[in-house]
Nucleic acid binder design. Structure first.
Lengths: 205, 205
DNA sequence: CGAATAGTTGATCGTAAGATCAATAAGGTT
DNA sequence: AACCTTATTGATCTTACGATCAACTATTCG
């Protein structure tokens, strides 16, 4: 082999800007999820295999880069048709809730999502408040209305009860990715049991 | 008044070491809970109204100071007689669980406790894993054994169910102190309802 | 009151981190 | 193969931060 053709290209330099930018953002997501939002740009550059100064060719400042990281992580955000699905009375409410949390847990029980959400929450970012507000209005509130129609027991669910259901489920992801303690590989069973307990309590089984 | 006697002492300097140390640690607890574990010592000193160099007279390094912060926050740790209380069959299990979570939520639903626990969890501190392991062994496992004896329904609680109950409750504190979104001033009712749902699901009501 | 003790300060050192910019060289074009 | 464009680099500036230490002064004791 000639010295100019590398079978394992040691470092493909000079990428098209779009691609390089994507590579930086994706690397930054994992990096900041690992070390926190004040990880330094030199370590990030080292991990990416580029120079630190290159980062500032694609982002005017570190906080610009962090903006791109947020955007990238929360782009796969809640689909807009969950409200319609959750209030579709043709399906049993149990199926609707289980389908939602099965999908939702797949979405957020990820190292990057969980940790960056927690880091930015602690940093006081408005993002988190907006997100939770949105979740409450778009998911939990419609679900609550449905449940209050469905409930046949003496008691009827309150909004705070739904936050409790939600929190109990999300806590699985917190144990897994924040505290990194042993927890089920697949959260499906735990989620199913939690939902079933909840529905049973209000005679919605 | 003479210039030497200040009616509002502008800055009481030269405290006895013990007292100064306590003052520093207490200030550091709030400070690091606010800004995170890599808040800088100059800002901390400013908040305390002392010089930055003074901090290093009481702690050899910043991480030494953080050790003292951890210790101070987690000193009011779980009492050792919860296991005995939780397994005392003379009281209804509902009362035992409610009493525990009433007390426990008072203990941990505090700005400093919640945030420093989350910060150190994200930093990968062994402290959190040890704490959760301890909680599981000393509180949840005995409780689980009790419940498995008490349950009369077709289904019997699993360890993961207890983590779900626990997580749903802890999530109230997370909403309050990490994300800082609206949530009940007094968590008692939400906790009571969550516990009652849980017990009802296993016919332990 | 004066001296001794020691809590506290201000100046400073070394390094780490964000940011800048002229110089370099990779990849396409002719 | 020579040339041009521009992605990438290496050196560097400035500021911020942890840590050190001699000097200062509040307080105590004789």
């Amino acid at each position: 082999m000639t010295p100019t053709e590398h079978p394992y290209p040691p470092d493909r330099r000079r990428l098209p800007p779009e691609e390089r930018r994507r590579q930086i953002v994706e690397g930054a997501v994992t990096f900041f999820a690992d070390v926190g939002l004040d990880g330094n740009t030199r370590d990030l550059a080292k991990r990416l295999g580029v120079t630190q100064s290159l980062l500032f060719n694609y982002f005017a400042s570190k906080s610009d880069l962090l903006e791109a990281v947020y955007e990238h992580v929360y782009l796969n955000r809640l689909s807009d048709d969950w409200p319609a699905f959750l209030t579709d009375s043709r399906q049993p409410i149990r199926d609707r809730v289980l389908t939602f949390y099965e999908s939702y847990s797949k979405l957020i029980f990820q190292y990057e999502w969980m940790r960056i959400f927690m880091f930015s929450g602690l940093a006081g970012a408005a993002l988190n408040r907006r997100y939770l507000d949105h979740l409450g209005r778009v998911i939990l509130a419609p679900l609550l209305a449905q449940m209050q129609n469905t409930a046949t027991g003496p008691d009827v669910p309150q909004m705070e009860d739904l936050w409790n259901l939600h929190g109990g489920i999300v806590y699985i992801g917190i144990r897994q990715h924040i505290y990194q303690v042993p927890c089920p590989d697949d959260p499906t069973e735990a989620i199913t049991r939690a939902v079933d307990r909840f529905l049973a309590a209000f005679n919605m089984g």
